[in-house]
């Protein structure tokens, strides 16, 4: 099982979201796609999910070009609120469950309990933290081959962040899934990562195994990323 992006370019207007990006992701690994806001992380995830299309290049999953149908195998947590405001929590869960055959109801029930979400509440009445939790329930309850998390900690307090990390550890099958987390909050996910990929305004400027980074170079992911950015900006002045 693998995801491949080959020479992918994606533009929004005159701005490049991704510039000739080639990268692949393999089963059994946890990847961190790190970079500042607007660096192309969300676009990369949307392209993998089939929610956006490359202007140039190709994106494939298991050697098949990605399409909307690919979402059958990819659980995607968006940075944005992708909810129907008038739905209750339960209706939201039921809708997602109806669309994805890999939705695991038992897991969803456990997650709901753990996240302390009231299933009768309407989405529009939920706090930002609880919306984040609900997104996590609908994503992690799927036994999908690929899990994509786009800024899972965005705007959430430390308690919620902690519960998200715990849920990731408890509910994901790290040996059989690809987990890709896109975030600019590097410290939160560093302990989870196998590999870090640095993205900077459309360019992939580095990719490193986190263990090697720590043990051989004595760098944290954040320090490594800062070094890369300085080097990249120096070269492109």
């Amino acid at each position: 099982m693998s995801i491949k992006m080959e020479a992918v370019t994606k533009k929004y207007g005159k701005d490049y979201a991704l510039k000739n990006v080639s990268i692949s992701f393999e089963k059994g690994r946890i990847y961190g796609l790190i970079g500042p806001n607007g660096s192309g992380k969300s676009t990369a995830l949307k392209l993998i999910t089939g929610l956006a299309f490359p202007d140039e290049g190709s994106v494939s999953f298991n050697n098949q070009t990605v399409s909307r149908k690919t979402s059958d195998s990819i659980a995607y947590l968006t940075e944005l609120d992708m909810f129907y405001e008038t739905f209750t929590v339960q209706e939201t869960i039921d809708y997602v469950a109806s669309q994805f055959t890999d939705f695991n109801h038992e897991k969803a029930t456990l997650l709901l309990k753990e996240m302390k979400l009231d299933t009768t509440k309407k989405v529009k009445t939920l706090s930002k933290g609880n919306r984040g939790r609900l997104k996590l329930v609908t994503t992690l309850a799927r036994d999908a081959e690929v899990i994509l998390l786009d800024e899972p900690f965005s705007g959430l307090d430390p308690l919620v962040r902690d519960s998200i990390v715990k849920s990731l550890l408890r509910y994901l099958d790290f040996d059989h899934q690809i987990l890709l987390i896109a975030t600019h909050e590097i410290n939160e996910i560093e302990p989870l990562l196998d590999e870090a990929i640095a993205i900077y305004y459309g360019d992939i400027i580095g990719q490193e195994k986190v263990e090697e980074l720590r043990e051989e170079q004595g760098l944290s992911v954040l320090e490594w990323f800062k070094q890369l950015v300085e080097k990249f900006e120096g070269e492109n002045k």
Binding site: L51, R68, S71, L80, D81, M82, Y84, F100
Partner: peptide, 16 residues
């Protein structure tokens, strides 16, 4: 117009 606000409906393996 409701769907266009977040396009959640497109995140589905069902055909268009």
């Amino acid at each position: 117009v409701t769907e266009g606000k977040n396009q959640l409906w497109l995140y589905s393996p069902r055909s268009s």
